[in-house]
Design a binder for these strands. Sequence first.
DNA 1: CTAGCAAGCTTGTATATACAACTATTGACC
DNA 2: GGTCAATAGTTGTATATACAAGCTTGCTAG
Lengths: 236, 236
Amino acid sequence: MTSVKTAKYKVIKQYICEMIESGHWPEHSKVPSENELSEQFSVSRMTARRALQELTDQGLLLRSQGSGTFVATFKSQSSLLEIRNIADEIQDRGHHYHAQQLQLKTVQVTEEMAILLALDVGYYAYFSSVLHFENNSPIQLEQRYVNPKLVSNYLRQDFTQITPHEYLSAEAPLTEATHEVEAILAKPQVCELLNITHNTPCLQVKRRTWSSQGVVSLAILTAPGNKYRLGSHLVF
Amino acid sequence: MTSVKTAKYKVIKQYICEMIESGHWPEHSKVPSENELSEQFSVSRMTARRALQELTDQGLLLRSQGSGTFVATFKSQSSLLEIRNIADEIQDRGHHYHAQQLQLKTVQVTEEMAILLALDVGYYAYFSSVLHFENNSPIQLEQRYVNPKLVSNYLRQDFTQITPHEYLSAEAPLTEATHEVEAILAKPQVCELLNITHNTPCLQVKRRTWSSQGVVSLAILTAPGNKYRLGSHLVF
DNA sequence: CTAGCAAGCTTGTATATACAACTATTGACC
DNA sequence: GGTCAATAGTTGTATATACAAGCTTGCTAG
């Protein structure tokens, strides 16, 4: 499984990442050109180019036609929308945390969900629904779909004792995540759970997380807009 | 200026964007394959592929090896992580951008604002209010307080021609930023500007930016939750 | 009728090549 | 010394080709 052939452009990406992270290639230093890399790795220029291009898209490199490719000022990748455990967050505020587990089961995935989790249509996924409380008032509803191929025993957990995030982090360490943030009006059932009126604006975060093995889970986090706030901090 | 040769892959991207935006290709519908596009536009498969690939990276399309390429669920999307120019963002989506300048003046800062901008109480700040349009419908209200110590000539700009962000980036390069994201109900005047009903949930982002000299500006960005979406991508 | 296989589609990876566009350096000329 | 043009090196775009890998469909053998 792990011995599947790794694409050449990924090998080059990995190499460049390591050079940058280890400090061998400091910020603003020049990165080998497409031609140099293609010779060094015995690949075509187009393959070397792909590695450079994707890293540029990810923000690790900067390219300038005519002059070359350079290491970007990073750090932006450290703590922007850091993924934290909500239980820790609440306790850090000095408040009391507890959770209520509403659902924990296997579900058939919809077509959209199948694509997002990289599963087959008609396949199943684990699903959990947990309501988080801060000082005994509901603060966030967490609905989460989990890739069963990567996480075993998910259904045997007690999510009043450990958050899904905490459990998943231990089982399949995060390597990547995407967020989508929207302002929405929640459905009536959700409003009832969160103890809000039907016209209270809510923040909804869809977070998709990867481990090195692939997509781990898709979490839909819904919180009243008047109680919850998302923060992020960037350093360039 | 407009007569410079446009790259072929961009023409194809533009075409696909238009098809999606006009509703000819609804969500989840199948997009022409790489081979079909290459024939239709008389380009090589690799060029057609590049268009599909970049739109996939941008989140407009979803691809699945073996089965094809599909239209993703459409929403406006903006990156939380990277601070981008809204005009660029809209134009990248292949849409028409324009802006309306509502206010541009000097104001006395409140106590809270003085703290946030690191100014003395009773001092003044520059204030601008700009409404951004995507395809002639209002998409975001930008209210911005600017530190006059660090930015001269702010009041002499024409923010229908250059966005405040663009101008400030040139004047005082960003070194740091913080964000706070909330879901709110906008005030009646703001609802009117954004052309939404009073109970439409809105995303409100408060962004404070620094240059090496100190706090540059505090921007309050308000956008309808049903039109706007914030995205972020983290790699660990 | 069903299970399973094969064909034909899709996207994914990789190569070799060509030329365009841009930048920095070099060197010749004034 | 300063200016300008040529040059070499870089990234950007585009093509043609080949094969690998995953999905869908349909046909065939049982």
